[in-house]
Design a protein around this nucleic acid. Structure first.
Lengths: 333, 333
DNA sequence: TTGAAAGCGCTACCAA
DNA sequence: TTGGTAGCGCTTTCAA
């Protein structure tokens, strides 16, 4: 059996190089303040190389009194391609600013209990998707040294920066569009997947509010992301008497469109359909799918916000509406 | 300005409760070995509560000499829905086993340089997708105390456990299927997205090998995930003289099918099409898309493997072929 | 039943 | 130019 040697420490490097631990630290961190002779410097580097020395991040940040850890709890909802791309962008951008992103798998009951678990990691900043955090949680995190807490979701939380993603706007745009195209009896698909309620509720609500006070009606249509469910909905379509549907997003739109077409419903003549997210998918459907294009902020912008907040934790919380929505009209509506 | 108080430490709790730090530690960690009077216990809990004390994970693991951190570098390729689901499952499962998942945003040049950065975090285990790590990297990580290194990808790395995801099998199954359906001039789509070469190359290769020695030919078809590119490919389709195509995955299959149909190519009469991934999407196409269903391991199985390896680091590296592939025949082939 | 103290690995201050 | 050393927050012997 090969005995794996103990992890080398800076003391080991110092011993091998014949210098003190302080000197090792100076050399390896290229401290500008102190000048080290070229010879010593080389000896230290060689020793570190030979031992395969790697500094211990936890020890370092314990000593420093702060870390470069940005904590991002995993979202409670299934991340679609759009949001996934956004997260991965963001992660890259933060990495480039020299932060270490820790994606904590939302341990237990999300709420202020989770905040405690996050606080144990003493992150310098925390990025929380959607609900997941109350004012008390923000306080816990700040007391644990978090210099910035940013929420991503529909509403702001006291004490935290907020990137407001207003999904009501998506429903609003979709509904207005259908209305302007002359539709009056409008269905709105509400996915039955529990995690999506976070988005579907505001989208439905946005549609409702967009048409309040008009002669149009809005009907909620619960739908699971499965063919049989779509078929059942399509089977009772004529009874519903709808002339348009906002299908939550492009994927649901495809699911429902297919079921409707199989049922002989003509799109858009009998029923107009509009999705959301502007996926490639929609462009490939026939008729081409109208959609609400959603613009998420670039990862680097958000990373910059985090960085700013970390540098100046005393600054008042920023609120940004970051969800841009606009209708892309194609053939299905 | 509200002055945020310094982060409370266990010493603060001890002071407030009028006991020693040792006692605080005993109480808060429910140490079984020592018995603390109920009264003291309560005082400590109250003090901790009042101060909002949260232990410092880094200090704790520094003292303990090990962490419960599992490091997962972000994959270098865009994660599709399948792989994304797998990762998120895995993350959940590890969390349930009380590990903290750190998703490190593959800092710089992936390779053994990255391994150094990862080693700084002293993870107890490392899960590396695809290439990203050589034998030297494994050594660095192990020397830094990683008790388990697991690679997820096409090939094993010396010294590390391997979950072998053999994408050649996907190509193999697709090609065999097309061959058995009587097709002989078979195209294989190769996405132009650079990150996907990791998968597309073995899939193409698997198709080639499946048909080696037969009278069938295999033609690589580079394709970008954009409509115009697909249209261009479709325009020269008849010139290619192909009677079947394995379209890399369901999304590319949809893109290409649409372009072919717009060009008047009949599916499957003129050209058979098969995708991969078995997405809902494919079931909604007309004709329904044949596909290679890919089975990834359940997150909990992989989590269990990691846990086993952590508990017994001396055990020899395990190799598991974890990518199950089987053809789902529908209408497009 | 509780407390004192050592030490995990690191950096930064102060001396030499 | 280099070394000694204190101390970040925590747990865990050993003593009392």
């Amino acid at each position: 059996m090969v005995q794996i040697p103990r992890t080398p420490t800076s003391a080991d490097v110092a011993r091998l190089a014949g210098v003190s631990r302080a000197t090792v630290s100076y050399v390896l961190n290229k401290a500008g303040a102190v000048r080290i002779s070229e010879a010593t410097r080389r000896r230290v580097h060689e020793a570190a190389e030979e031992l395969g020395y790697v500094p211990h991040a936890a020890a370092r940040s314990l000593r420093a009194g702060h870390s470069r850890t940005v904590l991002m709890p995993a979202p409670a909802f299934p991340a679609g391609p759009l949001y996934g791309q956004f997260l991965s962008d963001l992660q890259g951008a933060l990495g480039r600013l020299d932060y270490t992103v820790v994606q904590h798998g939302t341990a237990g009951p999300h709420g202020d209990t989770a905040a405690r678990a996050w606080a144990e990691l003493r992150p310098v900043a925390v990025l929380v998707p959607a609900p997941g955090l109350g004012p008390e949680g923000v306080r816990v995190l700040k007391r644990a040294g978090a210099r910035a807490v940013v929420t991503l979701g529909p509403e702001a939380v006291e004490g935290a920066h907020a990137l407001l993603m207003d999904h009501a706007a998506v429903g609003h745009h979709a509904a207005r569009h259908l209305y302007e195209r002359g539709r009056r009896r409008i269905g709105v698909v509400v996915p039955e997947e529990p995690g999506l309620a976070l988005f579907s509720a505001p989208r439905l609500d946005g549609a409702r509010r967009a048409l309040a006070g008009t002669d149009a009606t809005v009907t909620a249509l619960p739908l699971a992301y499965e063919e049989p469910a779509a078929a059942r909905l399509a089977a009772r379509w004529s009874g519903l008497g709808l002339d348009a549907v906002f299908a939550y997003n492009d994927e649901y739109a495809m699911l429902l469109s297919r079921a409707l077409q199989d049922e002989g419903v003509r799109i858009p003549e009998d029923t107009a359909v509009i999705g959301a997210d502007d996926l490639m998918l929609g462009r490939l459907l026939r008729p081409r799918l109208s959609t609400v294009h959603i613009e998420l902020p670039a990862g680097r912008e958000l990373a910059a916000l985090v960085d700013r907040a970390v540098r100046d934790p005393a600054a008042p919380p920023e609120r940004h509406r970051v969800l841009g929505a606009r209708v892309v009209h194609r053939e299905s509506s």
